[in-house]
Design a protein around this nucleic acid. Structure first.
Lengths: 297, 297
DNA sequence: ATGGGTTGATAGGCAAAACCTATCAATGAT
DNA sequence: ATCATTGATAGGTTTTGCCTATCAACCCAT
């Protein structure tokens, strides 16, 4: 029964019988039969078909919601019993927005000291993708903005504040200043993240309300790429203070505070709102709460 | 998998492999094999055996906790989909403390008007048993005291207040009074519920703190039995106002308010704290909330 | 229009599982 | 010592689950 519910979850993820079957490690007819069997048990059509997958019926959506919960709880049960036997072990899957990648180590390092048998998988994703992955049980926790765009059924633990800096060469026009305004930044050609990233949308908003428009000369989904351009001394960018520090400032590159407004975004750990959590996730929340006091910086 | 978890729940209820198997509609070897299979999947012994059932291991207790949730959610899913198809239907299982039995009709009657296809099963149980039944998913809702003894993971909706009355013949010593004190009541030979009922424990407490001791001349677990004795005119009892009214007062029998203190107990609807609820249960909560305004009486 | 490519349903067959009956071993009570 | 109770085990049958192969509907392009 639970396997069949997993079929349904895979189908919701992949929106394709064949791929969903592959994801579950079965053949397409097997998955089809499984879905049909749930439909028979429930006595309702759950999936709209018409020679191809066309989404779920309203009943299907409800079953999906329950399936997520039931499948999730079943995994949590397994994990918890495993933890009782072997101490914390297994794999913790985390996804973080690119600008937060630099601070993930602040969580994983103390975590690993307490629970050396836990392995990590850490993905770089957009804030929207992170929420989807959480929803689909594909990650255990996310690190993303906690206050801007709506989150789902999740708990969040604030981790730190994102302060923005203009990264630019000391030779460049604004390079010698101690602080600059967003209006001034709006005049500079910038390297920024792509618009699917929330960080970019935030910066666009700030630039716009300072009267500029956002015409970055270069876009990328990789912070490394942005930073490597800045490092040549011939490009500028706007980045959170933390990641600029982590990537390392050379003598020639300066990270100048941007004022008017002094924009601040809170970044936090986001975990599924479910009681009780897996022991590995609960331990991560513990670590996050210890790290959080460094929230005022 | 879910079937196996149900085996485990049945075993926890029955504490006996054979009876648990019967309750699940399978033979004893099948249930034994099912339990063993879960143990193998988890990699831990869950049940302590020694030629007979001896309880659960700590891991077993945890699995049991999860199993309750998973099995419960699975049933809720079924119920919800059924409700989407046929409107509210099925069976609503309620257990109430004896003193609250008279007011159950105040819930079932408006419920039935809205949802005529729902059938009811209503059990008379002690408050402790009600909580156990809720825990084991054997009832959907309970009606019991909401403030005295600790409840578990449940939501409660207050329904009404229980005020105590001395039921006695007008010929009896206190029979002509407009109110009596607990100290006076303590002098009268009473018919009361058995001590496993919380109502009895509450009355005992009140009598004791009024300086009396509780030596009822007659104990029973049936309100009907108590009331029929009072009705002879030769016995007295302490009962909540509501049930005395419902059972019907003859000219000769009076229900006299008891003061000093003017004891009040809140009775409420208690349902599993789980989101979302089954549609039938949710509808019951709705009805209860409408009834609740009558809470001040 | 028509043919190739895609997608999900269907049919047939085999292996695994789930379940039953019958029986056994251990324990406890009389 | 004997019998009753309880859960485990063995052996056999049915059911389920899954696979391969194939089909029908549809989409799109030529």
């Amino acid at each position: 029964m639970i396997d069949k519910l997993e079929f349904l979850l895979a189908l919701a993820r992949e929106r394709h019988f064949g791929r969903a079957a592959e994801a579950c490690g079965v053949t397409q007819p097997t998955l089809s039969a499984g879905v049909k069997q749930i439909e028979e048990q429930m006595g309702v059509l759950l999936v709209l078909r018409g020679s191809r997958f066309q989404g779920f019926t309203p009943e299907g959506e409800r079953v999906l919601e329950w399936a997520r919960r039931i499948v999730g709880d079943t995994r949590n049960m397994r994990d918890e019993i495993n933890a009782l036997r072997h101490g914390l072990s297994g794999r913790l899957r985390i996804a973080a927005i690119p600008t937060a990648l630099a601070m993930v180590a602040a969580l994983t390092t103390p975590y690993r000291e307490k629970h050396p048998n836990v392995q990590f998988t850490i993905l770089s994703r957009t804030s929207v993708e992170i929420l989807e992955l959480l929803e689909n049980l594909e990650i255990d926790a996310g690190i993303t903005y906690v206050e801007n765009e709506p989150l789902g059924r999740v708990s969040m633990i604030p981790l730190y504040h994102e302060h923005y800096r203009l990264l630019t060469s000391a030779d460049a026009p604004l390079g010698t200043r101690d602080s600059v305004t967003w209006a001034e930044v709006a005049q500079v050609p910038l390297c920024l993240l792509t618009p699917d990233m929330q960080n970019r949308r935030i910066i666009d908003r700030l630039l716009k309300s300072a009267g500029g428009d956002s015409r970055p000369t270069l876009e990328s989904d990789s912070m490394i790429l942005l930073f490597s351009h800045v490092r040549t001394g011939r490009w500028a960018s706007v980045m959170p203070e933390k990641i600029a520090q982590t990537l390392g400032l050379t003598d020639n590159i300066r990270a100048i505070p941007i004022t008017t407004p002094n924009a601040v975004q809170t970044i936090g750990l986001v975990v599924p709102q479910r009681e009780p959590m897996t022991p590995t996730t609960a331990a991560l929340v513990e670590v996050a709460k210890k790290v959080a006091p460094g929230l005022h910086d």
